[in-house]
Design a protein around this nucleic acid. Structure first.
Lengths: 201, 201, 201, 201
DNA sequence: TATGAATGAGGCTTCATTCAT
DNA sequence: GATGAATGAAGCCTCATTCAT
């Protein structure tokens, strides 16, 4: 009897988790295509193959859904960047590796990237939170780079970090939606070179 | 008689232009504060001290109003940047001057800057147009810098221009809303250094 | 001095009457094209080449304008029908003459006819008044025809009159907007035959 | 379990269909009373005892609702006219039967008739469609009558059909709103006599 | 948990009418 | 009389959210 309930409960949890996953997937797709504010909960539900009410069973409101997608995008980003072999290398190789990781992420999870690196989405409440996380993360990287000796330490780190995020949002957000426009090598090169050496001849 | 009519006509034009100006001012303020999509036409009208209908007497719809604000922001930006003395100087001075111009603009017209450098506004139809203009303008500047010898010419110019816009949107858009957070000198320094030399030690 | 004032006053009256005429003409044209309810006072004024406010100088409101157009359409109709030579003829010739008069009117003043014989316009307050006049007029004609011996007297005259108006509104209202669809002879024949002999073989 | 779902589903469908029905009923009533254009969606919803939004759950927009009412009026009309016993009779009896059918319809479904036979409603987009259907149907009846030998075949059938519709719209539309003004027998007599024999003595 | 019909606040826009010049 | 900018009531429709089943 207990086993029955257990099994049932498992089944429920499984199906519950699956529904949540379907919603996240649908939200990711639609938010990537048209932005959160241009996606109705109705469209979301129908894309996920569930009823509207079900959305609210899994997420408090639309903002919570956007939040979850952004969190998932950030988590995947972290995971992808973690794959990089942290060999002791010169600064250029390290940065290039990081930028390659970002480009790979954008290519592999173009919908997540399109949601995360989207100005419209980032200007919402959950978006601002994600933006802050991105900035913090850039700032951390900056700090590491400084103490490891390959980044300069004379610039206002908050501003510099914010600037790097600006570059990523603008470049990767655009590339995620226009993957055919330029190839990865160019994206990586521009990101790496601008970050390290700037435009000076 | 003609004089009368002339005067009358002038008075009317003046008042009409004044109303349009009031609407533009109100829109600039509210769009800067909460973004276009979070500003209702009612709030707009009441901020401008006119009736709702008056908005539509001067602008086809809300988008047209945002468009007008963005156009005015771009026009003012152009004007402010035009003030720079175009002395033949070394690249660093030139870029620094430009960045100073941008910072001055952001400081003097913080509302215009907050509207123009806002991800939410830029992801609308009129916003995308303005974004394109910003990118084009950065690309032009890049070309000039390359042919004048102070910018490198080996990077994908479209990507590089887009990246610079990303920096400006992120830094100036934020600073316009948080002017007390850092002072102008720092903003200018970070913008100049990142653009020219990057983060490399 | 008095002469001056007189002249001035005359001039004013003349121009006043002219403006009113221009408004009536414009209203007739636009009401004929799109119906009263789909014509804005703005469009009206601009078609007449005057300012919106001027409309209200000559007519209490939009309904009064429609009323005036309908009255003018009725007046012209009466005038046109009055041209018919009232020779003592047989019933068929008399009716045919009348129907020809109506067709001529519709052809010559197609805009007036399109306004007068329009279901949308007739279902307004001023329209109902005009409809009543049309019905009364048909009823009068019916009475005359009965006493002159060429119309039967056994039918409910109000209903019969209303039915005739229905025919005219439907046929002439349509023909006024599609003059090329059938030629006048056919219109006259159908109107005459249906009215006198019906469809019976 | 399946039974439960079935029952649930049935209940839902029933309730949904019921709501749609309530909306249709409310629209029919209000459109009959004041015409479509003078009926607000708010009034509609409150007459139906639902919220405004519910209207749009069942109909794309107000035009779709008018269209549905007109379609339902036409369907009911067809159904009522179908009841007539199609005995081989003389022309007069046949026509009289038809006219009686129309009068019965107008009496039994006075709101539907008031909507369908209303000039204001018929001059809308969905109305023109309904008008065309009425005309086509009259033309068909005319053709049948001609080939069966009781209608004359020398008149322009399009014009004649349109004229008959004009009579019906005017007479039945008016009678639907003023049922006490004349009694059914008179309506039927006038419709029959005018159609078959006209006014000639 | 899932459903989806229902809700209703609230947004955008139109347009007949007014009134200061 | 003429002007036309301004008015604001009122209409249509959307869509995030709820709740009875």
């Amino acid at each position: 009897m207990e086993g029955q309930l257990q099994k049932l409960s498992n089944a429920r949890q499984r199906s519950q988790a699956e529904t949540r996953g379907r919603l996240l997937k649908a939200a990711t797709k639609l938010f990537a295509e048209k932005g959160c504010s241009n996606t109705t909960t109705g469209a979301l539900a129908s894309e996920a193959g569930v009823a509207v009410g079900t959305v609210y069973l899994h997420f408090k409101d639309k903002d919570a859904l956007l939040n979850a997608v952004l969190k998932s995008a950030l988590a995947r980003l972290k995971q992808e960047l973690g794959k990089t072999t942290p060999n002791k290398q010169d600064g250029h190789s390290l940065v290039q590796e990081k930028m390659l990781g970002l480009a790979n992420y954008t290519q592999s999870f173009s919908d997540l990237a399109a949601v995360l690196f989207d100005g419209g989405n980032l200007s919402t409440i959950p978006g601002k939170e994600a933006l802050d996380i991105l900035i913090k993360s850039q700032e951390n990287g900056l700090m590491v780079g400084i103490s490891d000796g390959y980044y300069r330490g004379d610039l206002h780190s908050g501003l510099a970090a914010r600037a790097q995020v600006g570059v990523l949002v603008q470049i990767l957000g655009w590339w995620a939606k226009n993957p055919q426009a330029v190839d990865k090598a160019e994206v990586v090169e521009v990101l790496t070179e601008l970050r390290l050496n700037g435009l000076k001849r």
